[in-house]
């Protein structure tokens, strides 16, 4: 069964160039009719259950927009997205985390925001602190945490939601080596349990090992989808061409 089916999904933003000193963070001048930014163009793919599906591309190629559209945070302008199962997006470091609260309070708030009941997430607090290796800092306010510690806490909280489909946007890169290893192990455990993962990262070596298939995006278009090694090869090739043409 497919966990996720995208058919001709497009996402177009109104131009968001900022003009003038004052005014909101958007056009003061009315946008022209054709002043649109196409962030995603005709994206179609299927992700079977249990697959680790990678997405790569340069900055601004539409990776995060794609994840957000799948998560329902953005509404696509066109096309259809079918989701089979419970989905948990892990797009920011710590959804709903508040710097003024201690780790435990943040775990509870974040878990509840993600749809867990209070008693359920409370019973998981110890497990989360254990996994993120932050037990000794449980009573420290989050503002005193390092970015790596926050990421660990966020990841450990998110996987407790135990979704059928997990969307991960480049948040593990801040963790240290041992935590990353642990995270990848968690990914494999997910996979074993027939869960689906969509994973965005710039760490190509890790992607090659981890992913079953990789999608290469460029300027919102699908360039290639398939075998990790071949797609990464293609990605490097495009970047290489660009470098040469610049010189």
């Amino acid at each position: 069964m497919d966990s996720l089916i995208l058919e001709n999904v497009s996402k177009i933003f109104d131009s968001i160039k900022s003009k003038g000193k004052f005014g909101p963070d958007k056009n003061k001048v009315l946008p022209k009719k054709n002043d649109k930014f196409v962030a995603l163009e005709n994206i179609s793919f299927r992700v079977p259950q249990g697959e680790i599906f990678g997405i790569i591309g340069n900055n601004g190629s539409g990776k995060t927009t794609l994840l957000r559209t799948i998560a329902g945070i953005y509404h696509q302008n066109q096309g259809k997205i079918t989701i089979n199962g419970r989905m948990a997006p892990l797009l920011n470091i710590g959804t709903g985390f508040n710097a003024e609260l201690v780790a435990k309070e943040n775990i509870v708030l974040s878990g509840m925001l993600s749809g867990l009941s209070k008693s359920k997430i409370k019973s998981k607090v110890d497990e989360i602190l254990e996994f993120s290796e932050l037990k000794e800092f449980e009573n420290m306010k989050l503002k005193h945490y390092s970015s790596g510690m926050r990421a660990r806490l966020a990841f450990a909280t998110a996987i407790q939601i135990n979704p059928d489909i997990l969307l991960v946007d480049e948040i593990l890169s801040v963790g240290d080596y041992s935590f990353r290893k642990k995270s990848y192990a968690a990914f494999y455990a997910f996979k074993k349990n027939k869960k689906t993962i969509l994973y965005v990262s710039h760490n190509l070596d890790a992607m090659a090992k981890l992913c079953d298939r990789i999608l290469l995006l460029r300027h919102g278009k699908m360039i290639m989808l398939g075998n990790p090694k071949e797609v990464i090869e293609k990605h490097k090739e495009i970047i290489g061409d660009e470098d040469i043409s610049k010189n």
Binding site: R68, A71, G72, I73, P89, L90, L91, N92, T95, G96, L113, S114
Partner: peptide, 9 residues
């Protein structure tokens, strides 16, 4: 914003 941009709620 950070919550709105990271989960569908």
């Amino acid at each position: 914003i950070s919550i709105l941009s990271s989960i569908n709620i």
